[in-house]
Design a protein around this nucleic acid. Sequence first.
DNA 1: TTGTATGCGTTATCAG
DNA 2: CTGATAACGCATACAA
Lengths: 339, 339
Amino acid sequence: MKITITDIARAANVAKSTVSKVLNDSPSISAETKDRVRKIMKDMNYTPSSMATRLAKQNTFNIGLLIDMSQEQAYLNPFFYNIMVGIESAIGPRHYDLTVVNVQASETQEERHYMKRLVMSKRIDGLITNNSILTAEDAERLQKLSFPYVSMGEYTDSEVSWVDFDNEKGGRMLTEHLLSQAYRNIAFVGGVQGERLFSKRFQGYAQTLQEAGLPLLAEWNARGIADEELGYREAAGLLAQAAPPDALVCMNNQVAYGVLRAAKVLGLQVPRDLGIATFDDEPYSSYISPSLTSLKINTYELGACAGQMVTDRIEQPDLQHKGVLLEPEIIVRDSTRRN
Amino acid sequence: MKITITDIARAANVAKSTVSKVLNDSPSISAETKDRVRKIMKDMNYTPSSMATRLAKQNTFNIGLLIDMSQEQAYLNPFFYNIMVGIESAIGPRHYDLTVVNVQASETQEERHYMKRLVMSKRIDGLITNNSILTAEDAERLQKLSFPYVSMGEYTDSEVSWVDFDNEKGGRMLTEHLLSQAYRNIAFVGGVQGERLFSKRFQGYAQTLQEAGLPLLAEWNARGIADEELGYREAAGLLAQAAPPDALVCMNNQVAYGVLRAAKVLGLQVPRDLGIATFDDEPYSSYISPSLTSLKINTYELGACAGQMVTDRIEQPDLQHKGVLLEPEIIVRDSTRRN
DNA sequence: TTGTATGCGTTATCAG
DNA sequence: CTGATAACGCATACAA
């Protein structure tokens, strides 16, 4: 037997509208009435129905976070928890909830498409996604609806609000650090040609080498899905050459683990014979032996920024789209420290 | 300019109620009418408002997942993503969404208590939480409301539906494995006395030793917050004794990392001089050197089970409460392999 | 300052 | 098989 605004109105001998105004702390209600009604609400243990409020107010105070859960090893998954906490830290205080939604490849079927399920049916007020999920087509549809959304991951194709880490700068930082440690033959391992994430990272690496007047040997540019196996295979190949590299920049930690294994098998001392620096500072990088020099991205900050941006756009619909680049941080550990 | 059920009714020359019945595929509507109305819905790009549907149907098709995001190193956090995917795999096909909610310690304030915010205001139809968040008091309140909820983590205090891994059996499995590798002086490192999780794990360890007729030396039962630092400190202490242990069961991976560090500092060979087996198989256990023998819990399965249970309870309110114990799996790696 | 009437977009209960 | 009308619980313009 649930109690509604009508019950409160009856008990307080006022109109429903008066109770509603008390709920919303309207300035046009006397202090006495407010106190009296509030006391009754408390006594009767009344909580307004969010469904009714939402229908009347035409908003949900709910943010959707899109994830493709079928990609088990996707770029951001190991950091997912921190991202989520970051988002929550930004939207929670503004009274938004976070709904996590699975977007499978099977979603191509009209029926279950998230656009219909979430956006058109008004299940959420705003959307956070990443650029691997949000197609250009969907971005356009969202814009036509002027629906607030933010992409985690740079987005250049169209007018989109996004936040990302400066991967190009990250490539520079890792490479410059290796140069400072007197490594001179530096290769880049992992990453699929054409992939945005790879392109940026590689670009930073390549530019730094060029500016230092060092060669960029084509055969060192190994490419493939960035996992442990690739790291091992490519490193083994590179290090068996006549003039092998003396340092490697790895696309991610998995690749670095593979590289490390290859170095062990070949009897190379890290960091003496081979320097290893990697993108992404996974929680256990420091427990690996030798501990890995890596590029830390503050995933909490990434989420917080995305949450901030999406609520901003909800509350100020005419806001200009913008992209935000966050600064990475290099964590120097044993795998490159040879001074 | 959004279109509603009224627009469709007008365009199709039928009553709103007829359109509603078409939406719900009511058997009392002729096939012709259905086809005609559906075509118009498609032409006009109509999607029903979930807010209105929810208000009318009095349900939300939304499951809440409670997390205390302030506990950064909480037990389940590293596995959070998998748990979430597991939950989604169970509730998604049943058309439920997942809302992740932050429950801070500050929640003690009446105002923002999740009970009011989520349950009383009918923002969700069911709740998944873990036993470190759900107080006995709240459990009782939920029961009085006969609100569907499931605890991840064993729950003995009251009538609660829960799912957990068999931590006692896990303790047995790790200890039995160490015995099979001819270790005889086995200590247990990490865990706070009185903590449910620790008690179960320790119990399995202790019983196995007892059954093998081996002593359980009190001074080896180190206790404290289970992190890397504790692992290092306690292991260093234990291994400096006159009759040091030849194997350690670790409360979690962090502890094991600390133990490993201590062994290195003391110049002990793992696994020859010291066997190390640990609870929880974090993703990078296998990259550690030596790779860690660990107890893997299938976190996806844990989430899937919780999701299954909560939707079952939503759809069958009179279901009996029950507890489910899932089987862990031991992954034998180098840190204990000395045969 | 408070009350009345109407709207939010569906579903559900009856008639017809 | 279809339609009119009343819920669902709250918000809001307009009156009083």
